[in-house]
């Protein structure tokens, strides 16, 4: 089943988060503004390939734009290697001693990262993620974890209303998730994010943390949103906050009686 939607209501950060957490493999196509199109290929939740329709996306152009090739080298190779796929060209460049495999992979990673950064500026666009689509032919695949891109994307998020929707109240607290799905050592957090992280404790409401760190409501929301999306923390009711006085059904009955009433309801619904 393909995932379809629009970035207007399901942002690129949420989409990357979904792919990251579900360790999805497949091709993500996004129809962006002014007829632009993006194609990203993922393998087990990691970014393998990314391209934009209005930007050169073959290896030779990427190396030249990254200033890894001189103009003369670029023109000579372009003539000679026009018929080669990126993989063949990469192999040829490595065998000829122009580059090491690591240099090529790092240049591609930087280019793919730039593609994703461009996507952070797209506020709307139809997307479709197809987990059965074949990988793009002849391209070189990298393995880029999405954690840092997700954090970076969150920093770019300028939709304050959405942040408010995500974290409607600052009276909630945070706690570290029991089994973080993100390796802490691979995270690049900003100093402010680290400062907020040091206050993570079910006793500290977000309101309290914001006050202590002199952050505005929106700043604390933005930072907490990033930490949530990275799967580091979850929101909880502050431990010192009393539960509201709402009387639940059967709450005044002994346990045996409550169970008996519930079993009656279960039996009846089964028979419907």
């Amino acid at each position: 089943m393909a995932l379809k939607g629009n970035l207007r209501t399901f942002s690129i950060v949420q989409l990357l988060n979904l792919i990251h957490l579900a360790r999805k493999s497949g091709l993500l196509r996004i129809q962006g503004p002014k007829g632009q199109q993006a194609e990203l290929y993922f393998q087990q939740g990691k970014l393998a390939y990314a391209s934009l329709s209005h930007r050169p996306n073959n290896l030779l152009d990427i190396l030249y734009q990254a200033k890894r090739l001189s103009g003369t080298q670029y023109r000579a190779l372009k003539q000679r290697a026009a018929q080669y796929s990126d993989r063949e060209l990469g192999l040829m460049l490595v065998n000829a001693g122009y580059f090491t495999p690591i240099e090529i992979l790092n240049t591609l990673k930087a280019a793919y990262r730039d593609v994703v950064r461009t996507l952070f500026t797209w506020r709307e666009g139809e997307f479709i993620f197809d987990s059965h689509a074949p990988p793009p032919k002849g391209k070189i695949f990298v393995r880029m974890g999405l954690e840092n891109l997700i954090i970076e994307g969150s920093r770019h998020l300028r939709e304050w209303e959405r942040l408010e929707e995500e974290i409607p109240s600052l009276k909630v607290a945070m706690k570290f998730v029991d089994q973080p799905r993100t390796n802490l050592q691979n995270l690049n957090l900003s100093p402010e994010e680290w400062r907020v992280l040091s206050y993570v404790n079910p006793h500290n409401s977000l309101e309290k943390i914001a006050r202590a760190l002199k952050l505005s409501d929106m700043e604390i929301r933005r930072i907490v949103y990033g930490l949530l999306q990275a799967g580091l923390v979850e929101l909880v009711r502050p431990e010192n906050e009393p539960l509201p006085e709402i009387k639940l059904a059967f709450s005044d009955r002994p346990k045996e009686e409550r169970l008996s009433l519930l079993n009656k309801i279960i039996d009846r619904i089964r028979r419907l």
Binding site: G5, T9, F10, R162, E165, E166, L243
Partner: peptide, 21 residues
């Protein structure tokens, strides 16, 4: 309708805050 997921989450959070049900 993924555009309604945000609201679903907000509603869920609101209900959870009323009572631990």
């Amino acid at each position: 309708r993924p555009e309604t997921f945000h609201e679903a989450r907000s509603i869920l959070e609101a209900f959870k805050s009323f009572a631990p049900t």
